[in-house]
Design a binder for these strands. Structure first.
Length: 301
DNA sequence: CCCCAGGTAGCCA
DNA sequence: TGGCTACATGGG
């Protein structure tokens, strides 16, 4: 494997790779993060405040380029978070997640993983992703033939696997959705590349044509897989956060919340969403309750 | 045994 | 459009 150091400021591996935006990275020892980008295996660790150590099967120049793109290292995290609103919850989320970056994931990977995500806990999504990678992904080995990891399966490999084989990976009713979507892409009946050339509303509509893809999963794919940083996925957590903290005692519709979020959180609304999601999910119930009771959005009587 | 999990599709008024 | 409900499975 090739080894080198990579300059990476404002990047916390655990917050970024362990967050709910990606499901295939492993951290066996609390220090090193292992996983694949495409067919290339990576082992990453923090070496110095602004430096990562990288071990990879990829050729170094290619690996640097892949990592810079994946972690968005060309973008200034400081200037992105400056666009977030200044309310206390948002600021607390920022302070608790310094170095959390949004990843530029492969669109197919994001699509497949988030089709699996519906009504599943993050820990279980990881298990399903690992299961289909081991069953249908390609083996990634080092030069001596030692098995390092399995790549994420292609649409074609999931299409050929068949629905019942997917079901055997314990994904339940999601097997049909994932298999049908894989078939459509494999047969060229749905073009993931074209989706990326559309404007956000049209791209969202296109993704929602796929089986198992509704508004929430479409927004996740737009945000994590296509780089539409204003896409704002509304899952059960974000709905709870917006209703409890930003509209206490009002319970607005999801549609109203969507409109509010896209306006209030700004140009990188989806980025801000990830900070809120990870922060609130890590809180215990009583801490959240206190935050809500101190919300500045409570109407003054 | 209970409730819930980064939802969606199908059905009904 | 808006409001149910089934859907598979596993964690807490």
């Amino acid at each position: 494997m090739n080894s080198f150091n990579l300059r990476a400021s404002d990047l916390d591996l655990a917050l970024t790779l362990g967050s709910g935006q990606v499901f295939h990275w492993r951290c066996p020892d609390r220090v090193q993060w292992e996983g694949c980008l495409g067919m290339h295996f990576f082992r990453l660790a923090r070496r110095a405040p602004s430096t990562l150590s990288v071990h990879t099967t990829a050729e170094p120049a290619m690996a640097r380029s892949l990592l810079r793109d994946y972690f968005g290292l060309n973008h200034s995290l400081r200037s992105i978070v400056k666009t977030f609103p200044s309310d206390p919850l948002m600021q607390a989320s920022l302070q608790a997640n310094v170095g959390l970056r949004l990843l530029a994931q492969d669109a197919w990977l994001a699509l497949a993983c988030f089709i699996l995500s519906s009504t599943k806990q993050i820990i279980q999504i990881r298990q399903m992703v690992q299961a289909i990678s081991q069953a249908f992904g390609a083996e990634v080995t080092d030069q001596s033939g030692q098995l390092l990891d399995h790549s994420f399966p292609t649409p074609g490999s999931l299409a050929r696997a068949g629905e019942s084989a997917l079901r055997a990976c314990r994904m339940g009713y999601r097997a049909r959705f994932l298999h049908q979507t894989a078939c459509l892409i494999d047969q060229g009946k749905f073009d993931l590349v074209k989706v990326g050339q559309l404007a956000l509303p049209e791209a969202r509509e296109a993704l929602m044509q796929l089986p198992g893809v509704g508004p929430k999963i479409a927004d996740c794919v737009l945000l994590f897989g296509y780089g539409f940083q204003s896409a704002f996925p509304l899952d059960v957590w974000m709905i709870r956060i917006l209703r409890d903290y930003y509209f206490p005692g009002q319970s607005p519709s999801v549609k109203a919340l969507q409109a509010f979020a896209n306006d209030y959180f700004g140009r990188h609304a989806g980025y801000a969403q990830q900070y809120l999601f990870d922060h609130v999910r890590a809180l215990d119930a009583s801490t959240w309750k206190k935050l809500v009771s101190d919300s500045p959005f409570i109407p003054s009587s």
